[in-house]
Design a protein around this nucleic acid. Structure first.
Lengths: 332, 332
DNA sequence: TTGTATGCGTTATCAG
DNA sequence: CTGATAACGCATACAA
């Protein structure tokens, strides 16, 4: 199966290359007769557009770059999958770049993406706030940031789930289920979404007339030493009867640790996480969590990116996507 | 930051475009002086190769397509991630195509990939055997198949973990741990890897002088009705004391079902799965499993694909990657 | 060692 | 409604 060009199609259908191009792109005027003729030849030959040539001529690559910190994380994978699907339907192909949370790799990817002339960029979270001014990127490439707030916001759109509300609702769920002393478990370093979640936790306590003391009601955990830290904390504050974990990865770890310490979940301590990881449905007990609406997140992202590409964007915008509570066995 | 072309660089460094091209690609002869001069200008301007033009000229796109059935599946995501990382280091960008197990989408993707002039293709598993003759693809594109055997093997390389050996080892592990009546749980429709696993199970029984009866020692499960089916089976064959599940998704479901039926794992029934899903470490009890070597799988895949692209491939080859046992609490 | 000229396949401009 | 022509940026054959 040889590769036909527009010239070949032109010859075979007895018209000029220009006309073939017009027919293909349904652009300009031509008679119905020539249209049919050309289309027939295309059908026969199996002609396919050469995108390298088209890109070169049009200064448009019909491909979008997606920067993601870790594609093997279920949340990111699902999000990317949906973004990719929508983009494909719109005629774009997606170049997924797994930055592995490394700034070096991120820069290398950006350079490659610029070189390939991508039409737009989606930046999903990352180790630190994305800084377009530091990036090896023509400032003209439209980009949209998801989940983590970029350093500059004037020339982009920032889209995130409503982390604040999710944390607020989760905390109120604990209170409504009888928790007298709920705490929040988190890492020492908080991302922008983590900060939002912390605020939601605090405000839910305040609104329900509970005290909040950062010294005693926040359980800071590092990657190691989780079990002893938890043990020490519970020894010091045995009244603790509810934990809101900043995400499910941490919640799952806490659940194991609590079980090992002989604490009954939810009877003695209720637990709720964030992200609705599929894991949650397979722990014992199953884990309550805050669920982000990935479909909407993906749709809004693509909508805004395509608008930006077509110069119809409102920049500097910040969009918040609603979340829902998925209550399971780890809460009463 | 404008976009410089080779012509611009040529002017700025006082040489011809051809010379600049030679320097960039370190190809042909030129004096050290001009080399330095040109490189300096490139550095200053931040010149970047236009890949659309390069691709058009060279009939090479420096991008690779990857067909994957479901990127939100952890096994596939990790595999793709590693393949992408290796390819990037080799100067290729990866277009990941999530086929969602749909032949229609698969065809649409193949057409797009052909249109973009990809240099090679990786096909990871899929609903049925990949059939190059059915594909809307120039027969000249080199491709490598992972995990599931393609229909034609003459013009490709087939790479898979040693499913047979993994099943064999898992079954022997059950026997060595005292199982008198191990069975295998599987779906009605088996993929090529599933068939391999079934053979491994059978042969391990034979080698250890156990009987194998397909009627009574295979537990066929559909997507629904798993709990009642399991219950009925155990009522009929109460001596069952070990289950090898065709994969972890099924194993996790079985574990829940067994727990609901009041069966103690591993005391009364031992359980082992396949794929070493991260989930396995968070179930109660934790789940034993067969682990595929993703790193090696990815490396061998890329090696073979690049060889094929450079016309140094041996086609019709089939490569098997070793597996290891990850024994946890669900086996004694 | 270097420069000139050509063409990759496409679309856009302009003329008819 | 249609055709000729130029140009996108690059690599290469050929000439010098």
């Amino acid at each position: 199966m040889a590769n036909y060009s527009i010239k070949d199609i032109a010859q075979l259908s007895g018209v000029s290359p220009a006309t073939v191009s017009r027919v293909i792109n349904d652009n300009g005027r031509f008679s119905e007769a020539t249209r049919q003729k050309v289309l027939a030849v295309i059908q026969e030959t199996g002609y396919q557009t050469n995108y390298s040539a088209k890109s070169l001529r049009m200064h448009k690559s019909f491909s979008i770059g997606v920067l993601v910190p870790d594609i093997s994380n279920h949340f990111f994978a699902s999000l990317v999958q949906q973004i990719e699907a929508i983009l494909f339907d719109q005629g774009y192909s997606t170049i997924i770049c797994n930055t592995a949370r490394s700034s070096t790799k991120e820069q290398a990817y950006l350079q490659m993406l610029a070189s390939k002339g991508i039409d737009g960029l989606v930046i999903i979270s990352g180790p630190q706030a994305f800084d377009i001014e530091q990036a090896a990127l023509p400032t003209t490439i439209p980009y949209v940031c998801i989940d983590r707030e970029p350093k500059q916001r004037a020339d982009t759109v920032f889209i995130a789930a409503n982390h604040y509300q999710g944390a607020f609702d989760a905390t109120e769920a604990l209170l409504q289920r009888g928790c007298q002393r709920p705490i929040m478990a988190l890492h020492a370093q908080l991302s922008s979404s983590g900060t939002e979640r912390l605020h939601g936790f605090q405000d839910a306590l305040k609104k329900n007339n509970r005290t909040f003391d950062a010294q005693t009601q926040l359980l800071q955990l590092t990657d190691t030493d989780r079990l002893p830290k938890l043990k020490a904390y519970l020894a010091k504050f045995p009244a603790t009867d509810g934990i809101f974990a900043v995400n499910d990865a941490l919640a799952v770890e806490l659940l194991s640790a609590l079980t090992q310490l002989g604490q009954k979940v939810p009877a003695e301590i209720q637990l709720i996480g964030f992200d609705d990881d599929p894991l949650d449905q397979h722990t014992t007990p199953t884990l309550s969590s805050v669920k982000q609406d990935l479909t909407q997140l993906a749709q809004v992202t693509v909508d805004n990116l395509l608008k930006a590409i077509n110069h119809q964007a409102t920049y500097g915008k910040s969009i918040s996507i609603p979340v829902t509570l998925a209550l399971r066995e780890s809460t009463k």
